[in-house]
């Protein structure tokens, strides 16, 4: 092989090389985009750079952030959970119905989380044991969970939750626009981030998403992993349901209808490949914030919601398609760097 760059003993890339790769990577690009949107909006949109704006922005994206954490792992493992918003609704309804019947709010919330785990386990069972594709399974449970939610409360709404709990959910750190609940998110995000990026389980998530068979040959219990990812997704969705109930003071069967698509969109904007195996948690968090900030800025600028949806859709397509186009444009010039043995297996 006539390749001057190929060393006989490949070494770990230098810290500088690795840093360069991170800085040229997708996470860096999406972060730069977020910074740009925030800067431009701060300069051009009145009231954007205020604590109030950020306060509501965080409260609005909080459920998406919560659900995006397990969704990121699922999509990287080449699975998907579309039942999350329905589980959120079911959880909300359970909290409302139980509270209405005199259960303490904390116990009602705990029951909702357990039901979330059970619902997630149902998804996991159908996918890993029965062997159905997760897309089909979770479209089914999307209807199932929503049906249960609406069946329990009908078109009623339960309101009148204790103000202490509601105040806690909407409290913010003194002097800032940052809601207290964001602290919970930071803890959870760190936990999911560590699992995905710095544990054996995380390595298996990527390996399973790229090639489940090879992952199995390498001793990975792919089925078990997938099952628990669905359970985590159910629990986080239920937690988002508890939040939703208290944040809006209303438990309804149709809470958060369609939110699953916002979550999946944010995960894709955040750089996760829908085909699995690629992506990172920081990118997804930035992706959620990017969409939230953009929509918030456009709303403040009095742009109609139809236009906002169009802009969000274009952003999704651009961020998903963009990297591919860039890679193609760089084309042959870049290929040698990543393909030292272009002649393989010749």
């Amino acid at each position: 092989m006539t390749v001057d760059q190929v060393r006989t003993v490949p070494a770990a890339p230098s810290t500088r090389t690795r840093l360069t790769r991170v800085l040229l990577g997708r996470d860096a690009a999406i972060t730069a985009l977020l910074v740009a949107v925030v800067l431009v909006a701060s300069l051009t949109v009145d009231n954007f750079s205020t604590a109030t704006t950020w306060y509501f922005l965080f409260l609005d994206v909080f459920p998406i952030l919560l659900i995006a954490l397990p969704m990121t792992l699922l999509v990287i493992a080449a699975q998907i959970d579309l039942s999350v918003a329905s589980m959120l609704g079911l959880s909300s309804v359970l909290v409302g119905a139980l509270y209405e019947n005199g259960w303490p709010l904390a116990v009602a919330a705990l029951v909702a989380l357990v039901v979330g785990a059970v619902g997630g386990a149902l998804n996991g069972f159908l996918v890993t044991v029965v062997g159905l594709p997760s897309l089909a399974v979770t479209i089914g449970t999307l209807a199932l969970f929503r049906g249960l939610a609406v069946g329990i409360l009908g078109t009623r709404a339960v309101t009148g939750f204790p103000s202490g709990a509601q105040d806690l959910v909407s409290a913010h750190f003194a002097g800032t626009g940052i809601p207290v609940v964001m602290a919970l998110f930071v803890v959870l995000a760190l936990a999911f981030g560590v699992v995905l990026h710095a544990t054996p389980t995380g390595r298996l998530v990527y390996a399973a998403g790229l090639n489940a068979e090879a992952a199995r040959f390498a001793g990975g219990r792919v089925g078990r992993l997938t099952f628990w990812l669905f359970v985590a997704s159910g629990v986080m969705s239920a937690l988002a349901g508890v939040y939703w109930t208290l944040r809006y003071g209303s438990a309804r069967g149709d809470n958060a209808v369609g939110l699953e698509l916002s979550v999946v969109a944010a995960v894709l904007v955040g750089g996760v490949s829908i085909f699995g195996g690629r992506g990172a948690l920081p990118g997804v968090v930035v992706g959620v914030l990017l969409i939230g900030a953009l929509r918030s800025a456009l709303r403040l600028a009095d742009v109609s919601s139809d236009v906002i949806n169009v802009v969000t859709g274009v952003l999704l397509i651009a961020t998903v398609v963009g990297p591919g186009l860039v890679a193609r444009a760089r084309g042959a010039a870049r290929r040698p760097g990543t393909r030292p043995s272009a002649g393989a297996p010749g």
Binding site: M1, Q5, V6, R7, T8, P10, A11, A12, P13, T17, R18, R21, G337, T338, R339, P340, S341, A342, G343, A344, P345, G346
Partner: peptide
């Protein structure tokens, strides 16, 4: 033989 340890395995001979 690889560029470095970050080289994608599928690109090797």
């Amino acid at each position: 033989k690889a560029r470095d340890l970050d080289a994608v395995a599928g690109t090797l001979s």
